[in-house]
Design a protein around this nucleic acid. Structure first.
Lengths: 209, 209
DNA sequence: CGGCTGACTAAGCGCTTGCTCAGCATGGTG
DNA sequence: CACCATGCTGAGCAAGCGCTTAGTCAGCCG
């Protein structure tokens, strides 16, 4: 297991204190691993509980349902991604520099945390309706953040883009799809891949590099 | 339903004559629709059979299993995609022209046939091992075709690319991900999207456009 | 006409699923 | 010591799963 453990996502949440019992972390970690590998519907509560070292019944002490586990993973994953994007978009430098950093970090995250990334991006359809609404709003925010940065680049002449929304789609799309194809056996490190994608995206947006 | 019917994929297969009973087409169409919307594991044989207008038992007269249906969809979808890519890569014009056409068609296909595209790209893990092997070989061929075209463009000075494999990944990645996010409500037509993505990819590859 | 075939259905089998519940061990508190 | 809250387990329930079986029926052939 070389991908980043899911726990890092939760322990650094803005909630503050780390009040979650350790067993709940193990369940989350096991659920992410299994949802990413087999998909939500092919994963059984017995799979998750066994991987977390307990009986199926114990799962229901910490989470109200299998879908509840998915909802928590999905919301935390999206929140972390949005935070990453916001940080890069509001960082220092001109729009081109910020876009480069955004793509580098966005890409590297989707490579490094590809198991979480798969759940976040490809198991949306299994979310209960209320959890889906929360997550959909976060996704919209991410897209808007990228669009705004492209517009800033167009405004100051750094980028040449005819359709901002299409370009924004392409930028996020490239990063998201990394979580689908990136594996342990990939020869590029997440950071290398990020740097190369940063380069490609800047050229795509018409920046002179 | 504005996406292209699955049947078109099969009726134009190189097998020649159209010998498949009409009921088998209805089952394929229903399976694609349901696999794309809910995923393979969340789809029941009752879903498929009902949508095709028959009882669950009738499914097993035409296909040996639910996974057999998936295998046929996946193999035909991959074969069609490879054919599309080969056609564009071996077409007329210099490497840049051919790459533009390849991206235009690849992208438009993933928008237009997004239901098939979702099954083809996101349900691989549910394939039986032998069917997976066939499909994995087709995917490798697609990637190789794109890489070869990029290399040709680099050789004749049209493209400036430091890592051909990474660039090829990015090109196919952009197209594949279209099947994830494109919907009926998208404002761009598949052809428009294809043209815009063709533009973006040429710039990404360092072509002067 | 009788006999046969191929597409189909009603019923249901054996099994797995998500989830529940009664009960048990542990450790802190009075 | 008794008491209870907490975290967990073994057993198992109701529902739903993929798939099978026995049998129906329309249409074709001699």
């Amino acid at each position: 297991m070389t991908s980043t453990p899911i726990a890092d996502l939760w322990r650094t949440l803005p909630d503050g204190a780390d009040t979650r019992p350790e067993a709940a972390y193990r369940l989350l970690q096991a659920a992410v691993e299994s949802f990413a590998e087999r998909g939500f519907h092919a994963t059984t509560t017995r799979d998750i509980a066994t991987a977390a070292g307990m009986s199926p019944a114990a799962l229901y002490i910490h989470y109200q349902s299998k879908a509840g586990l998915l909802a928590e993973i999905s919301q935390a994953g999206h929140a972390a991604t949005l935070e990453l994007v916001r940080g890069a978009a509001a960082g220092e430098g001109d729009p081109a520099e910020r876009m480069r950093r955004l793509v580098e970090e966005f890409t590297a995250w989707h490579a490094r945390a590809r198991t979480v990334g798969r759940v976040v991006n490809y198991e949306l359809h299994a979310l209960p309706e209320d959890a889906y609404a929360v997550v959909a709003a976060l996704r919209l925010d991410i897209e808007r953040e990228v669009s705004a940065l492209i517009e800033a680049g167009v405004a100051d002449g750094a980028f040449q883009v005819s359709e901002v929304r299409t370009a924004a789609r392409a930028v996020t799309s490239l990063g998201i799809d990394v979580s689908r194809w990136y594996t342990d056996r990939s020869t590029e490190t997440p950071d290398e891949l990020g740097r190369r994608y940063g380069e490609l995206v800047l050229r795509m947006l018409g920046a002179r590099v």
